[in-house]
Design a protein around this nucleic acid. Structure first.
Lengths: 217, 217
DNA sequence: ATGATAACTAACCGGATGGTTACTTATTGG
DNA sequence: CCAATAAGTAACCATCCGGTTAGTTATCAT
């Protein structure tokens, strides 16, 4: 029979220790990057021992990759959110809003991506591109259908438009601290967040909507 | 009298050594970030000695800051490019194009900004924000005048629009390697660069132009 | 020429760091 | 209860790394 895994007094719980190590590793890698993070610091933050890190995760790089993998797995492809019954405009609104909220709610993911971008995916490798590709696929399809149905401009350059849309979402969070300083505002307020999202959606739709299509928002 | 500084055989040239160190430091800091760069590596790449780095620049952090400073100084404020005789649309085109080209021509600057952003300006501090503020001032003014003259939409949120414009330029270069992989294209081709710039300008102007203003591009 | 000095080199230092070994202790099946 | 084993600890190791010391050589005013 399985031992009582749920005992709160269990001082030796492999799973719990692994979780604690992973959480600590994530926090530190997210904050300081791969080179800026010390294994000892992770062990201490996890209230564990350096040894256990090597037992459970092999080495620093593999631990880092594990953190990366878990963060990448959390991203559900935007394609799941597409409701075929909706118009392309509605679909795009849903997908962009979701992407925006996701980035807002997952600063860790954003920062890991930032570190990996600067390292040119030296550690994450292809996984980085795969995640992005999966994310962007939905937008690509929506734009295409929007064009076919005459809702979006027929001369749209779809890949570049996808790039621009993600750039707009991304950049706000990526340079959060810059905007916060320049505007002297607290950007975490949900109100501000909604404003920026609305602004982004507005800009995007002005850019992609067919000139003579529905004038109403 | 001053010694013959220009002699090519001069084996002891303080200035030249400092330049070599700075160049090597820039290359390595840009590529690997502060934490990822070793002083010894800089000394070797500069064909100099670790000692000289400490003589000329104090320590690793000061050397890094010097590299940062020089890169920030190179950025001439966009305001210089504004020709009061031009229309706001022309001015905006000039300024955005210049910004775009600047980012394209200075990947080092871009990457240093990236590292510093992730470190939340821990080393660069206020300088980071100052540079950005100076850059963005011109755009702010142009948008304001464009609104006053009726060329741009009166309901524009100027700060957010500035953010979006810079985001569009920035993001393309910041995630160059991602787009290169996703599109399977060489993004350094001047033709591609022009395409992206044109796409960006198009998107921006569709977003900011007054609805009933000049229909011609 | 030569002494003073600026430019440079190499060997070194102590603490940090990624990774390991030897050992202890809680848990559990029998 | 007890041997087996999984979980955990601490001390250790070799190397790395930022920074320094002591000593060497090119340059130049005199």
């Amino acid at each position: 029979m399985a031992p009582f895994h749920n005992s709160p007094k269990n001082k030796r719980d492999a799973e719990a220790t692994q979780t604690r190590i992973l959480r600590a590793a994530e926090e530190l890698f997210v904050r300081h990057g791969f080179d800026g993070t010390r294994i000892d610091a992770i062990a201490e933050a996890a209230r564990s021992n350096k040894r256990m890190i090597y037992v459970y995760f092999g080495n620093k790089e593999q631990l880092y990759l594990e953190v990366l993998k878990r963060n990448f797995e959390k991203v559900i492809p935007l394609a799941r959110l597409v409701d075929p019954a909706q118009t392309p405009t509605e679909q795009a609104t849903t997908v962009i809003s979701h992407y925006f909220r996701y980035l807002s709610d997952n600063p860790a993911f954003l920062r890991l991506l930032g570190w990996e971008s600067l390292r040119e995916g030296r550690l994450a490798g292809k996984a980085l591109v795969d995640v992005a590709a999966a994310e962007f696929e939905a937008l690509h399809g929506i734009l295409q259908r929007g064009i076919e149905q005459g809702e979006f401009r027929p001369d749209l350059d779809i890949p570049k438009t996808v790039m621009s849309i993600t750039a707009l979402c991304f950049s706000f969070f990526n340079r959060r601290f810059l905007w916060a300083t320049l505007w002297g505002q607290d950007l975490t307020r949900p109100e501000t967040l909604n404003d920026v999202l609305a602004h982004t959606l507005d800009l995007v739709f002005r850019g992609i909507r067919s000139p003579c299509s529905s004038p109403k928002a």
